[in-house]
Amino acid sequence: MRRSKKNTEKYIALSAEGKKFEFRDILNGEVKVNNKTQKIKFRQNNGLNFIIYKNKKYLVDILEKDQNKYEIIVNGIGHSFTVESPFSYRRKKFLEKSKQNSKTESITAPMPGKIVDVLVENHAEINKGEPIIILEAMKMQNEILSHVSGTIKNIHVKKNENVMKDDLILEVEK
């Protein structure tokens, strides 16, 4: 046996929205939904990957994966999942509990583009929903709003700077 001992019978997939799915013996291509076992089949066609489930065809794609973090596309809609083992799932829950009192929140660029204007200053108070920067993407100027209330801590961008998606714009202290 040239593999380490692992619990490979059960996997837990957690969505970014907190949905939880459990799969047993997943490589068999079966899922249990409401105690009924359903077959899931993979089809490759013309460079596209499909899943056949309950006689329906779904276009699927793995957009990104980083260790156990997945970004999956099903019929054009993206879903973020982390895949956990029973142990790592418990660990995750434990760490979440102990982390709930974190103080700073980051605001990141929702799309790639150019910073046209920074509307806030360091140490300023900001309320949820107030605009913080104007970002130009695809020739449209978009106001980026704060999703938290608090004090602006660090502004990481400057006017006329280009940002990529998910680049840190600033941090807000709650």
């Binding site: 380490s4 692992k6 156990n68 973090k69 982390t82 142990f87 790592s88 995750k92």
Partner: peptide, 13 residues
């Protein structure tokens, strides 16, 4: 850097 210990040990392997 790995998210949990199982993956860390997997990474070493």
């Amino acid at each position: 850097i790995y998210e949990d210990e199982e993956n860390t040990l997997r990474g070493i392997r």
